[in-house]
Amino acid sequence: MKKAILFALAAATFANARAADVPVKVQLKWFPQAQFAGFFVAQAKGYYKAEGLDVSLLPIGDQSPIQTVATGTADFGTTWITDLLTARQQGLPVVHIAQLFQKSGYTLVSLKTKNISKPADLMGKRVGVWPSGNEYPAVALLKRNNMTSSLDSTVSNPSVQAVTYPFDPSLVFPDKVDAVSAMTYNEVNQIVGLGYPLDKLNVMNAADNGVNLLEDLMFTTQKVLDTKNFKGSGLSGQQVAAKLLRATIKGWNYAVANQKEAVNIVLVNCGNTCKGSGTRASAAGHQTWQMAEIAKLYKAGPTLKGMAGYLDPATYQANVRLLTDLGILKSAPSAGAVTYSVWEAATGKKAK
């Protein structure tokens, strides 16, 4: 009888502990897809639960995640480094806490018949770009090669006509633009799916042309990091951030090592966006392509040295210099734009 009572008490205690999981909202930088496989794997495998977190992964589409996190609608988010630093420049107290992708996947894709194989070939052309802060890689690539675009209202006779489009290449490619923005893991495959095989395309990688702006990172606000009692949990914002990051890195490491399983987990979550807009590929086929390409961006740089999630200071400074030299940033961001304390707490390692 006594054992039964003790067992019941233990079960009740466990149930209460589960009920007390800290609610955390994470704003993803697009719709659910393999780009965020590590997050979905961490959720499906119970890695967040093991850290005492009840994580909600929020889609956003073609808007910037900065606003939802800055206003407190979400607690953490993913975005690109240029988006984060330009937001800091505008006075938003967002803070970089981890760098998931260590290599840029941004490209400009054109038909080989257009003879666009290097940035200089874009002179006088129409280039498809994305809205909401996602145009910066194209702007940087043009500026680095002494070209202007119609995105700059102060320029009367721009070198390039920018055509803003909402991420579906079929809306503009190839009739309305000469080259179109495309991520290696997403739009490149969508364009192939539209009936343009890789051997008929020129894929100009921005990183190969001096613009290696870092992409998917994790961020939050200074307010969250300074919180002493996050949502009444008894944990500080720093502690919650470290728990979130530790589980997320575990999810990413598993996803990259077990890509087929990770794709199956993603397919459960991505619904109508699984196929990718504009592609003829199957949902599973597109997400499999995406997972393989995403793995290349994650498994590079510090990740190969056992430091997944680490923002290499030299790479960061190179990004800052590029953005300031191009005038995208007016000055170097303050030290508060990046913190290594969350990564150190999550991994037990020291930043270099």
Rank of each mutant, 00 (worst) to 15 (best):
Ala19Cys: 11
Asp75Ile: 06
Gln161Asp: 02
Thr154Asp: 08
Met183Arg: 07
Pro313Cys: 10
Asn212Pro: 04
Asn258Cys: 12
Thr315Asp: 07
Gly285Leu: 01
Ser104Phe: 03
Pro131Thr: 06
Gln63Ala: 13
His286Arg: 03
Leu323Tyr: 02
Leu85Gln: 00
Leu225Gly: 05
Gly91Trp: 02
Ile249Phe: 13
Gln317Asp: 11
Ala11Leu: 06
Val320Ile: 14
Ala206Arg: 08
Ala283Phe: 01
His96Ala: 02
Thr68Asp: 09
Asp121Phe: 08
Phe219Arg: 00
Tyr316Ser: 06
Ser104Leu: 01
Asn209Gly: 07
Asn146Pro: 02
Ala87Asn: 05
Ser159Arg: 07
Val188Leu: 15
Gly336Lys: 08
Lys49Ser: 15
Leu92Trp: 07
Asn319Ala: 11
Ser153Phe: 12
Leu151Phe: 10
Asn134Asp: 15
Ala337Ile: 03
Gln27Ala: 15
Tyr136Ala: 01
Tyr185Phe: 10
Gly237Pro: 01
Asn157Ile: 01
Val180Phe: 13
Thr339His: 01
Ala346Asn: 00
Gly46Met: 10
Pro131Trp: 05
Gln43Thr: 07
Arg321Phe: 02
Val55Lys: 09
Glu293Thr: 03
Arg126Glu: 02
Gly52Ser: 06
Phe230Cys: 08
Phe219Ile: 01
Ser104Met: 00
Asn186Gln: 09
Leu213Gln: 12
Asp152Gly: 06
Ser277Trp: 15
Asp208Pro: 09
Gly133Lys: 03
Pro137Gly: 02
Pro32Ile: 05
Gln259Glu: 06
Asn258Trp: 05
Ser282Gln: 04
Leu28Thr: 08
Thr154Asn: 09
Leu329Trp: 13
Asp199Asn: 14
Ile294Cys: 01
Asp325Leu: 09
Phe76Arg: 04
Asn146Tyr: 08
Pro313Ile: 05
Ala314Val: 05
Asn186Ser: 13
Ala242Met: 04
Trp343Ser: 07
Arg144Gln: 13
His96Gln: 05
